[in-house]
Design a protein around this nucleic acid. Structure first.
Lengths: 126, 126
DNA sequence: GATACCGGTATCCTTTTGTATAGCGCTTAA
DNA sequence: TTAAGCGCTATACAAAAGGATACCGGTATC
């Protein structure tokens, strides 16, 4: 049988913290998850990605893509057209992140609702 | 009926990116999730938290706790002992993060396994 | 009286992250 | 011939995050 509920012994917590920190490490920064989500609609070229992401600068996009490639979330394919075409695509491995992404998406949506209803309440109090 | 599979129209992706960025924003930084996990074992005092977290500096811990309080993930209670005792505890709202945390924990564990088996393969190739 | 713990704050510094701007070699379209 | 798009890289800079160290007022302990 698999434990579904987290155990809260000090050791178990330390282990959880370690695992979560590993995850935070490879997903670090503002842009990695947004890039992965943008690519989830299908392969995309550099400039198109840049436009999808509300004007990330090319320097950062380039850097982040390299890191995503290193972590095997993204592939970079160069087509011998002229001039060359470069296409970025998600790997299968990137799909293991789906649960996290979906969790964050749902949470973000409900959090925004909560924030909005809070600010409505505050207005009423004035 | 509720759609379980993500939709990948450009608009849907832009919305997902927005929601995920909201989430990333409130969970930003290296320490917020680790702090929450550490507190999931029960309320804790400042110095104890610092020890649980493998030597986060007091400045950062203090700053992060303030932000967690602002976002209603954590409460700060001062007891009138002498000298005063300060206890940090999780709120109910912080439990809405459980799915995300659990997802990241699981992912971190399997990612580490994968990395280790990769490095074993590389050693064989040498 | 000296030392040590608690819950932090203050100061300074380094690293990381991000922005702004320019440019390059190549090609197609006007 | 000029302008514009592509896939970046280079340079310079600013802002944010994080770390190191020291310290403070209060209390308890030796």
């Amino acid at each position: 049988m698999i434990l579904k509920q987290p155990v809260h012994t000090p050791e178990a917590c330390t282990q959880s913290i370690g695992a979560v920190r590993d995850t935070l490490y490879v997903l670090s920064g503002k842009w990695k998850l947004p890039i992965i989500i943008a690519l989830s609609a299908g392969p995309s070229r550099f400039k198109d990605l840049q436009r999808s992401l509300n004007d990330i600068t090319p320097k950062i996009l380039s850097k982040e893509l390299k890191e995503l490639e290193l972590n095997e979330f993204v592939t970079r394919t160069v087509y011998a057209t002229s001039p060359v075409t470069v296409e970025y695509a998600l790997t299968r491995y990137s799909q293991t992140l789906n649960k996290i992404i979906e969790g964050m998406r749902e949470w973000g949506v409900q959090h925004r609702k909560r924030m909005m209803s809070n600010s409505r309440k505050e207005k009423k109090l004035l």
